[in-house]
């Protein structure tokens, strides 16, 4: 309140995140329902969701970062699509409980591989998304002669 540098109230921004989060969560719920993981097996559905989400979020945030300051429409896209849709689409809690359930069910090695593998692949996917966005941006600025 009275903060001239942040005219949009926090709750309005949270509403934007909520709208995106509802969309992302619904998409994940439908995918997990359609491709329910078998007990004792690598949970592929959560894997693909989390890796795809990491890649797209890396690309989205890098694109926004390179296109200007985090205000107005850029901030709206970051919060609605990034924090909301992609944040809600991916899940850490389901992932970790899947690791625990695998280990608890006697599949300790698989659980450890799934846990560590997901984290490492997730970071690599994010790096890939960032690299792709940076390359596209470089090509666009060179091609358009916008410098």
């Amino acid at each position: 309140m009275g903060d001239v540098t942040r005219p949009t109230p926090l709750l309005a921004l949270a509403g934007l995140v909520a709208a995106g989060g509802a969309v992302g969560t619904t998409a994940r719920a439908l995918l997990e329902h359609a491709f329910a993981p078998a007990p004792g097996a690598w949970p592929w559905t959560t894997s693909w969701i989390n890796l795809a989400g990491s890649f797209v979020l890396g690309a989205l945030l890098e694109t926004l970062l390179r296109s200007g300051p985090d205000t107005g429409r850029r901030r709206a896209v970051r919060l609605g699509c990034g924090t909301g849709v992609l944040g809600g689409f991916t899940t850490y809690s389901t992932f970790v409980v899947e690791v625990e359930r695998l280990a608890d069910g006697g599949h300790v090695a698989l659980g450890a591989a799934y846990g560590l593998g997901s984290v490492v692949l997730g970071v690599l996917a994010a790096l890939g998304g960032i690299a792709l966005a940076a390359a596209v941006r470089r090509r666009a600025t060179r091609g358009g002669g916008a410098r």
Partner: peptide, 19 residues
């Protein structure tokens, strides 16, 4: 679990922060 906590927790942001 799938709805509230799935929407609350996030894997993508964790990956991008580490990246």
């Amino acid at each position: 679990g799938v709805g509230f906590l799935g929407g609350y927790s996030t894997f993508s942001t964790a990956s991008v922060e580490a990246a």
